[in-house]
């Protein structure tokens, strides 16, 4: 287990939280903990309670969906410095896909229940988190739309 100060430094050094003041970093560090997943471990499952999100520090995570007769289909993979999970922000807070560690994964998780409470009372913190999640969601949406086009498919 790392100390609160170490966690503060970890978060401070991460690009996702760049620009946050010490007060807000302290608040986040209070909700954060280190996580480790071995290759093959599921980080969360579709439909489960989305009570946290992850900042990946090392390794590769596959976001998957189970398709009848096809097994698990990987929709995208996430890597070092990517954030994993935004369902904690959106009621009713259920995961929409599975997340599986493809390799050894080290991550920081932030407790969504704890964060939601803090965002409720500290709207400034709420704004800063939203301002960081919306571009991530936008980027994922853009990538998903391009993927949907199947650009490299043989011409019809």
């Amino acid at each position: 287990m790392v100390s609160l100060q170490d966690m503060d430094d970890l978060l401070n050094a991460h690009p996702f939280f760049a620009g946050l003041g010490p007060k807000h970093l302290d608040e986040l560090a209070g909700c954060a903990r280190n996580e480790r997943f071995d290759a093959g471990d599921y980080i969360f499952h579709e439909g489960g309670m989305a009570d946290r999100f992850y900042i990946l520090r090392h390794g590769q995570v596959a976001v998957e969906v189970k398709v009848p007769h096809k097994g698990s289909v990987v929709l995208e993979t996430l890597h070092e410095d990517d954030t994993l999970g935004w369902s904690w922000l959106v009621p009713p807070h259920h995961w929409t896909f599975d997340a599986r560690a493809v390799s050894l994964v080290r991550a920081i998780s932030l407790d969504g229940v704890c964060l939601r409470e803090k965002m409720e009372t500290d709207h400034e913190l709420g704004f800063h988190l939203m301002a960081r999640f919306v571009p991530v969601m936008g980027e994922r949406l853009r990538a998903a739309r391009l993927q949907m086009l199947d650009l490299y498919a043989p011409p019809a």
Binding site: Q60, V73, L75, E80, D81, E139, A143
Partner: peptide, 21 residues
């Protein structure tokens, strides 16, 4: 790759995402 098949364990997603790496 846009679509993972078989035993592919590498990245899945648009090539644009590799730029961020």
């Amino acid at each position: 790759v846009d679509r993972a098949t078989g035993r592919w364990s590498g990245p899945v997603g648009m090539v644009t995402k590799l730029i961020a790496r």
